[in-house]
């Protein structure tokens, strides 16, 4: 018998702490990044930076189900689309407040994720991937046929969202920092979730669903809940992207985009949250840099990805931890 007087303050996942540190370093770098843009006198960098931060939110949301729940959703761009179109549709009706738009985007996404998730989770493995892809494509074609908002051609926004009546987001730097605040807040949320009772159940189902059932957990309801949370967070990224681009189009929800989100998560290292953020940064920066150097940048990006997967299956996180482990 252990003595009850000495409760064991066990830190269950010692691997978490260093990864939080990685996220904090990334956030600090993001916070300082606008200084670089000013120093180089290149305001376009801020625009790219905002895009990267918004995708980091989406990649992190996908990691929540892909990395922690072993649910490979190939239709997550749909939620980016719901977020962007929520901005376009509500502002066309004069509702420009970003919180109202976000609420609308999250509500639509929750319903869509609940219904499609409930159906998709009846399947496993490659079938799950295919069925989420099919639902993503359905959303894509729905918005293509939405002629009131430009259909295929997309729809330009007359301005950015307002914050409690203020149009402060019209300033690119303010929008950048607003996106950073959203990223940090959602990281804290996701981090709390994975370390909670719910997170432990979700991770347990990833590890061994049979064992989870045999100790009393029905996987479906936990997986579906995670799926809905992930969709809702991705929608927030969509709201921010619409503001960054001031333009919405079905291209935000094409299956290529879903694939890019998966690439970001895998590149960064699945099941780490901070890895997904790093993966989004790496993927989008590479796209920009390689894109400047050659028009065949996709080829080089592909080669890079193959090398990463071959030599560091745990992505940038794995690479980083290996280097750090060697130094210690």
């Amino acid at each position: 018998m252990t003595d009850a007087t000495a409760p064991t303050p066990r830190t269950a996942a010692p691997a978490v702490a260093p990864r939080v540190k990685v996220a904090m370093i990334l956030f600090a770098a993001f916070a300082l990044f606008p200084l670089l843009a000013f120093a180089l006198d290149d305001p376009f960098l801020i625009v790219i930076g905002t895009r990267i931060l918004a995708y980091a939110i989406a990649a992190m949301a996908l990691d929540l189900i892909l990395g922690y729940g072993a649910m490979v959703s190939f239709g997550h761009a749909a939620y980016l689309g719901f977020g962007t179109y929520a901005v376009a549709i509500l502002s066309s009706y004069g509702v420009t407040d970003i919180f109202a738009q976000t609420l609308f985007a999250v509500a639509i996404s929750a319903v869509f994720a609940f219904v499609t998730g409930a159906i998709s989770l009846r399947t496993k493995g490659v079938y799950f991937i295919m069925i989420t892809l099919a639902f993503g494509q359905m959303a894509f074609f729905f918005f293509i046929s939405l002629s009131a908002y430009g259909g295929d051609d997309g729809y330009g926004l007359s301005g950015r969202s307002t914050v409690l009546g203020s149009n402060m987001l019209e300033n690119d730097t303010t929008l950048y920092y607003a996106t950073l605040v959203a990223l940090i807040a959602l990281f804290v949320l996701c981090h709390r979730i994975v370390a909670s009772r719910f997170g432990r159940v979700l991770t347990g189902i990833r590890e061994n669903p049979t064992r989870m059932e045999s100790i009393g957990f029905p996987p479906f309801r936990y997986q579906l809940t995670a799926f809905v949370i992930s969709g809702c967070i991705t929608a927030v990224a969509g709201v921010l992207l619409a503001n960054q681009a001031q333009f919405v189009s079905p291209a935000f929800m094409s299956w290529h985009r879903s694939g890019e989100l998966i690439v970001m998560v895998v590149l960064g290292g699945i099941g780490t949250l901070s890895g997904a953020i790093g993966g989004a940064v790496a993927a989008l920066l590479l796209e920009e840099v390689l894109g400047m150097m050659t028009e065949h940048w996709r080829l080089w990006f592909g080669i890079f990805l193959v090398l990463m997967v071959l030599f560091s299956p745990r992505g940038l996180t794995g690479l980083f931890e290996q280097i750090r482990g060697r130094r210690e």
Binding site: P9, R10, T11, A12, A13, R192, I193, A195, S196, R197, F198, G199, R200, V201, G204, M212, I215, G216, F217, Y222, T225
Partner: peptide, 20 residues
């Protein structure tokens, strides 16, 4: 602890750390 958790309270708790 996860097997214990299955019979002790709800597992739809999203914020409090389970490790402690």
């Amino acid at each position: 602890a996860l097997a214990v958790q299955a019979r002790k309270g709800s597992s739809f708790r999203f914020f409090a750390p389970v490790a402690t």
